[in-house]
Amino acid sequence: MGTLRWYRKNLQRRIALHRANGPLQDFLIAPFPGPYTLLQDVDLVAVDIETTGLNPRTDSILNIGMVTVKNGGIHLDTAWQEIIQITNTIPEATTVLHQITDDQAATVGKPLSEVLPLVLNRLKSAVLLAHHAHIEQSFLSIVCQRFYGAPLVIPTIDTMALMRRYYERINRPIHAHDLRLFNLRKRYNLPRYRAHNALNDAVATAELFLAIIADRGGTGYRLRDFC
């Protein structure tokens, strides 16, 4: 698809680098992996965040989970998650969904200012992998802007977009729920997970990505085929 898009992204990176400070500067200094890099040689970091709502300007991050996919495997020794301390109270509806309560977020949670450098460090020279990546991308970008003066620029693979394009290509009508992580996993005979937290969903997304790659023949793909 997009070698051109790749160069544009690299350009954005260098522009952001001028304004960025702190950990974001360290992150943006590292060059992106090239578009022709073989997929198995890249660190793909599956990311999932749980938030209090959908608006990155007004809502906050509650929970962030990450795990690295490399060489065709999900390496659970890299699995990591943090609960984020928040100042405003959590809406009840989200509590039910994420099972994270005010108390938990206040006592177990860490301030975002402490967690964000760790997130950026893990994402350095890597590709962000997420389901409906727009959420992860925009929330992280807003907080980077807030803390470090520039947005987060990173190559991204979105499993949801991959599947939408696939369905469009085979002319399959798409219903809203078809593209949900849960239903796509079922399609690939992936097990059903009960727990709903950021790390679990990051692992679930990574598994879905492995299944999509396997479905397309497995080896030989380059980064530009998916970003």
């Binding site: 495997g73 659970l76 492995l210 396997a214």
Partner: peptide
């Protein structure tokens, strides 16, 4: 134990 695990996926027929 989970951290000693790597997950892989194999397609039917492999």
């Amino acid at each position: 134990l989970p951290k000693f695990i790597t997950i892989r996926y194999l397609r039917r027929g492999t």
